[in-house]
Design a protein around this nucleic acid. Structure first.
Lengths: 380, 380
DNA sequence: GGCCTTTAGTAAAACAGTTTACCCGATTTC
DNA sequence: GAAATCGGGTAAACTGTTTTACTAAAGGCC
């Protein structure tokens, strides 16, 4: 009869030591174990193909070494390049630290059953990373001010006390403004993201407008139209812009999808992107490079955003673990707070490549302009 | 001092019963519990906000109620609509049965460390669903003939004994052939998937060719060109086709991405899709509908594929659980085999909406033709 | 040689459930 | 009226780790 999984006791027996010893060796707390014993045990582990049970390991520490990524309930959310890049970043960093990732979709049932709290309570998951959160996700309020490890990725809710991590949207807006101005554009419109619904969309819009103002270029309200972050609405917004102000030479779009919509609008109205109309996007999704003409856009490094979000999560978990269980944890987490300052954290918990040193102030993920061929230079 | 998570013992004490009773109630094995006791306990559970620990629950049964989805190491695999739809299907079905999903990417490190075996061995995961597997994934051989719950989604490896679940590619090929023939096309080319690397790609190609032959339309070898399932190569393949055989009236592409490439090739050569060249795709990804002109394509229902794959996985796990542990399991799994017949399985384990009754023989996921505007009728 | 440190290791108690075998009193059966 | 059955429940063992507190032996010191 085939033996089932070997347990730590099997290893201990076969090596002539106690389970404690094996455990100490596995967890590298082997200060106290002679190297002779250690190598003997390691050999047994190898021979028996012993793998410690995650379930059993997690039981005492109440940790499953698993992080949940929550996506909004959009049709085919998984199939979106924006989420895809962030998830890749999170996954890679988590895997490096031997954490696993689980996926959740914030459907009505998910929210109704408070699954976002339950998966934490039942130890399924150590922390939550929420992608694509908007003001519609009222239930986030439940998590407000809590020491629960929740991180909002790429949005912020000033009204609730939640930890978030963001790309440097103000800088993105400035880069776009500077570039268009430098190329000689003075009549500029903008297709913005859903304003008052997504904090970062407003950050971008305001930074863009303010920077143009600094250059002495005013941009009237009706030249900023909401494109809802999507292709169709983006197209309509751009069409409206071009209709009301035919002498516009450039349009800045709050994301690449809307910029693609603007391409379509331009074509439909007989304008040629890259020759008699300039368009700047924001995201640098793969589609931007393959667009016709290839799109000049502000690259937001979503992969790095994912890595940074995961790093922050792991750091918070490390903190929580390091100062005892239960009681004191709450205060400690409170003190560490929504740690936007990314202060120096205790060594052990900090993973190798946190990118911390390259983060701009306030922990923003850096951005840069990618020049391709959708912007005309109006200079002599 | 705040109490930490309540345990089953807390619930038991507060309700004046034993932990056993609480456990029986939670697990609905409450045949033996009076409804008075049950409601009393349920009330306590509610009051204490008690959630059984997944870790502790899994320990005796060695099950984490978690399934792993493995994706190939393509750049930004998460950002692919094909995978996205399948994952959505798997996720939805799993969530319904209270299973969680974890994500893995089959990178070199993943394979080198045999993580695909380890996550099973260490009880992180109860089963593996592999998406996008190709002949390159030699390590799959490791899993051959094993009773480990591994399911290959949408590919098959005749040389290894692995459980797989597939869309009805032969039917897809026939639908495309019938449609083009019915519209009067007689000079037809094909951009196929990577032949000899992906079993299902060959199924599709062969079915298409054979069906045309049945209609009396022969299709010469050089009119079938490999497009590697991707836009760029698909474009080149189509261009080659149109160059060598200018009087071609129609091209069938093995997936939508290649069809989109074919659109580009046609445009570049001055041909107009939907008027003087007909193109049929295969997949029906969102991009097919928004293409210009909207693409006629064979719809492979990837969401349903995901649901079916997950259902099969859960059924296998149900079987494994139901007949004791360890020893007998292997035989049982063997008997159930690569269960393409989808025979009637023991009741309890079978989830509500398996779609089983609508599956064609051999458990293929059904397909259908979606007529849009990329095919011209040559009939009077 | 006795006392104090180390060193290397261990026993046993958590952790939080499930499961098996059993118990006790009230009916039913014969 | 005694034995068997049944309803309703429980005690205790078990799952596989980690962790705390302890110990036995060896080494250093005077």
């Amino acid at each position: 009869m085939a033996k089932s999984r070997p347990s730590i006791r099997d290893v201990a027996r076969e090596s002539g030591v106690s389970p404690t010893t094996v455990s100490l060796i596995i967890n590298q707390v082997d200060e106290r174990i002679s190297s002779a014993t250690r190598s003997r045990v390691l050999k047994t582990i190898d021979r028996l193909q012993y793998k410690p049970s995650r379930l059993a390991q997690g039981l005492p520490s109440k940790s499953s070494k698993t992080l949940a990524i929550i996506l909004p309930d959009l049709h085919m959310a998984f199939a979106d390049a924006y989420f895809g890049e962030i998830i890749s970043g999170i996954y890679d960093h988590a895997a490096e630290q031997d954490y696993r990732i689980t996926l959740e979709v914030a459907r009505r049932s998910f929210v109704r059953s408070k699954r976002y709290l339950n998966i934490l309570d039942d130890c399924s998951v150590d922390g939550l990373l929420f992608l694509g959160a908007t003001e519609e996700h009222r239930w986030l309020e439940d998590c407000s001010g809590s020491d629960r490890p929740l991180i909002i990725v790429n949005n912020r809710f000033p009204q609730w006390d939640l930890d978030s991590i963001l790309c440097d949207y103000p800088m993105a807006g400035r880069l776009a403004a500077d570039h268009l101005f430098a190329q000689g554009h003075r009549h500029i419109g903008m297709v913005c993201g859903p304003s008052a619904k997504v904090y970062t969309a407003d950050e971008l819009t305001n930074a863009f407008i303010d920077r143009l103002a600094e250059h002495g270029v005013a941009i009237r309200d009706r030249l900023v139209v909401d494109g809802e972050f999507n292709v169709g609405p983006g197209q309509r917004a751009a069409a409206q812009l071009l209709a009301t102000e035919p002498n516009l030479t450039a349009i800045f779009c709050g994301n690449d999808k809307m910029a693609l919509g603007a391409y379509q609008a331009a074509r439909a109205m007989g304008r040629h992107v890259g020759t008699d109309l300039s368009i700047v996007g924001c995201d640098d999704l793969p589609a931007a490079a393959t667009a016709d003409p290839p799109m000049t856009t502000v690259r937001l490094n979503y992969y790095d955003l994912g890595v940074a979000a995961c790093a922050r999560m792991l750091r918070r978990l490390g903190l929580a673990r390091s100062n005892g269980n239960a009681q004191k944890t709450a205060d400690a987490a409170k003190a560490a707070g929504p740690s936007n300052t990314d202060a120096k954290a205790p060594g052990a918990a900090v993973p190798a490549k946190t990118h911390r040193h390259v983060l701009p102030p306030a922990g923003r993920i850096p951005v840069r302009l990618v020049e391709r061929q959708s912007v005309v230079s109006l200079n002599v």
